[in-house]
Design a protein around this nucleic acid. Structure first.
Lengths: 309, 309
DNA sequence: CCTTTTCTCTGACTAGAGTCAGAGATTGTG
DNA sequence: CACAATCTCTGACTCTAGTCAGAGAAAAGG
């Protein structure tokens, strides 16, 4: 059985198991959609518009669901204090009790599932689930080239700057960030998970190669013989809550691939001694330390890697 | 977040991911129930009664689903040659093509999911899924005490005997198996997965202890002070397709617990040098080798363990 | 102030997934 | 052979989970 077949098989098995579990704890007379809605409203309440986008519901449908829940005395829907058009749903006391019930039934059915396992087996299970989730999250991230003034990228770079300001003992001047429109020859990659930006990185030409195709764009690089341009990789950043999934590695190698296809033979990058994980990443990815080549005061360390097909 | 919450969280994430996947490959105009039915009928065809029990469908509903599929030319439903009441569904040529399409769409969507991962990450994913499946299968097994003439147990013991006959160089005489009705003081445990027998084991009193409660049944043991009877564990067996999940370990410790609660302080067991996994299991479970105590020619090795609460 | 946009609600409708109560044909059994 | 049991099918319903097209109120923009 190949990998794909193994994954399909696991999916079949797992959904079946989960189906049994869910039927058990949700099958208490309440329709699934109402239960989900109770979950989403949660203890703090939520605006209808917010609920609609989060759950992907039709506005008419949500309205009816809420009506049903409020007829049952579980939810109250009140006008937004600041905006008379929008409304806010909150759980009533009974609704909160119902939600607690749902949660505890869910917990109970999971506990019953885990009961026959030893402590060691349970933590193995949890560990394996965690690993799967990391890998699936990583797989769900898409990388796409964007302009250097793309608002999402500027947002990432702002976060990047703020983080460096906190981590560098000497602080960080945001003016060091690439200014919009100044990329020149190069590519900015933006990483998105379900549309939400979770990382970025860019490469930028330092000195053109001898082959003629370098500056003429996407289609030229691969065909133009030995790649010989030199580029710099900059602003490689992964959002804090998306770290540990191998996304930095993926961004880095995507940048390398892209640079290579544009006739770049060597990439360099500068970094700071206080960025330990980044340095470890570069070393693991085959970068070798070189004398610092950059005038930026933050780039106290420099690395280089020769790109090969 | 505790283990239960982590498992719930994973379940939520995974079902959501799978939902997206399934929508993608099944959402080709065909209702889910029809697609499932095509899967279940499969290349070989299936009897309606069989389909109903396997899929848990109402007979009227199944009838209508099949009608719809046969109207679409995907399935033909023909009378059973031997029994005029029952009927058999088989895929037509077009139905087989449709099923192949479904399968390849499913494969494609899994392949697209895996595409961003490196080979190492993919095999990690598959490995973690395999581990989860093992643990869930183990957790799904229920152990229950049964009589020594229970048909399921006799079936297990027959398989056990056949296996030993193959593995022992000297063969194995099935007459060595415990005869129905001869257990005496002791317990037979049967392991079932979804109702299907997957293993068994028993303990049997060798010599009673000094405390008075030993022979008087379930309620006596725990309260009767220090456990001091001696029992033998026999016929511990796990079906071939349920091995590697830790089920042997679970059966063994359930037998120990049960024996302890009946006033047994020491358990012994005999085994054969060619049963390497079993010997490793006993050692790992805290058994120490002792001189062979048994007249059975197969029990060339013997182990013992003192039971403690 | 008028128009456009935003937000929610109502009414009308649909498809999917079942359930339930027989009817009809066939087979097994005393 | 009569009667019970088995198997499938039909008709009549139900519930869930939506979709779609407006209507009406409030807010934002020029």
């Amino acid at each position: 059985m190949d990998q794909i077949e193994l994954v399909r098989d696991f999916n079949r098995y797992y959904t079946q198991r989960l189906g049994v579990l869910n039927d058990h704890y949700l099958g208490q007379g309440r329709p699934l959609s109402e239960a989900r809605l109770l979950f989403e409203i949660g203890g703090a309440g939520a605006g209808l518009r917010d609920l609609r986008t989060r759950m992907g519901l039709d506005s008419g449908y949500l309205s009816r669901l809420l009506r049903s829940l409020s007829d049952q005395g579980l939810v109250s829907v009140d006008p937004h204090p600041g905006d008379g058009r929008s409304r806010i749903a909150t759980l009533t006391r009974a609704g909160r009790r119902e939600l607690d019930d749902l949660n505890s039934r869910s917990r109970d059915s999971i506990a019953a599932l885990l009961e026959p396992l030893t402590e060691a087996q349970r933590s193995k299970l949890v560990g394996a689930q965690e690993q799967i989730r990391r890998l699936l999250r990583l797989a769900a991230v898409t990388l796409s080239p964007v302009a250097d003034d793309d608002p999402s990228v500027r947002g990432c770079l702002t976060s990047y700057g703020k983080e460096l300001a906190l981590r560098f003992p000497e602080g960080y001047d945001p003016a060091t960030l690439i200014a919009p429109g100044t990329l020149g020859t190069g590519t900015v990659l933006l990483a998105r998970e379900e549309g939400v930006p979770v990382g970025c990185g860019l490469w930028q030409l330092l000195s053109p190669g001898v082959s003629s195709g370098v500056a003429s764009g996407v289609s030229s690089g691969v065909a133009s013989g030995a790649a010989s341009g030199v580029a710099e990789i900059r602003h490689l950043w992964v959002a804090a809550d998306a770290r540990g999934y191998g996304l930095g590695r993926r961004l880095l190698s995507a940048l390398e691939q892209d640079a290579l296809s544009h006739g770049i033979g060597v990439v360099r990058l500068g970094t700071h001694p206080s960025l330990g994980e980044a340095i470890a990443l570069y070393r693991a990815a085959g970068y070798r330390e070189i004398p610092s080549y950059d005038s930026s005061p933050y780039n106290q360390l420099a690395f280089e890697k020769a790109l090969v097909l």
